[in-house]
Design a protein around this nucleic acid. Structure first.
Lengths: 145, 145
DNA sequence: ATTGTTGCAAAAAATTTGCATACAC
DNA sequence: GTGTATGCAAATTTTTTGCAACAAT
């Protein structure tokens, strides 16, 4: 989505277009994955007058209208990202904390079963998959030698 | 697992058995799903001398040795629960916040694909599935009528 | 006796809120 | 002009930490 389209998106969803909101969207787009604090830092490269609470309020609105989403990837603050066409799934390694993105189709079967067996509509954007990545998995095994 | 077995479990994993840790385990077992604060409240029915920071430290240790796990179910504090034989998956409705438990086999295919396609070892205990439950799904649809 | 654990109080991290001002519409 | 959004500072919420006293082994 282009900058122009983001404006349209805001308008179409009945919320005001403000420089702060535009900057938050741009920061999230540029950073791809970021916490509120990181988004603020990115914005402050352009304008130091923006406040952290404004970032939180903007993210809240943008999430309400479906432009951004968040997931709990790390142990601390949630990570925000754009909801775009290429929805991706986050694989979080609980050992080294590395986050890998992968295609949404991985969860196709899960989504289907949730739908048919539990009448539950899976929200892929929030799906954070925790576990052990290949590197740490190998190290863990090696420790037994 | 019985109380006696929990003691053995702690011993076998080289951590000390303290009343505080026993009470944290019991509280988590009794509550099934609880935040650190809720665990403290439960404990304080028995002993008011236990401190919240001790609960956090106990949960940390218990998680390290694989007796409890946590997932980010709500928007706020994480939820802790026992890791038992019947691992279950949490379905979290983002509309009404209701949490439903379901069998782990739902994610069998996902786990297998993560393993073969990404060499990633899925940790089912941390898997929080967000989405819309059947009730809210229906209401959402009804809103368009 | 040794070393890990706890309680306390204080700090840190993350987020929310009240309110006057400013800006989008 | 009207009503929403912002900045600021203060309050909340959640979690961590330093340290002296204490308890498990």
């Amino acid at each position: 989505m282009t900058t122009k389209n983001w404006d349209d998106y805001l308008r179409d969803h009945g919320v005001r277009i403000t420089p702060q909101r535009q900057m938050v969207i741009k920061a999230v787009a540029d950073l791809e994955h970021a916490t509120a604090e990181e988004i603020l830092n990115q914005i402050q490269l352009v304008s130091s007058a923006v406040n952290l609470s404004t970032v939180y309020r903007a993210l809240d609105v943008l999430e309400d209208i479906g432009l951004v989403a968040h997931a709990h990837l790390g142990h601390g603050a949630p990570t925000f990202f754009l909801v775009d066409d290429r929805t991706h799934i986050h694989l979080v390694c609980d050992i080294c904390s590395k986050v890998t993105c992968t295609g949404a189709n991985l969860a196709n079967e899960l989504g289907m079963r949730l739908d048919t067996e539990h009448d539950f509509d899976l929200d892929l954007t929030h799906l954070a998959i925790h576990g052990t990545c290949s590197k740490c998995r190998y190290m863990d095994t090696a420790a037994y030698i």
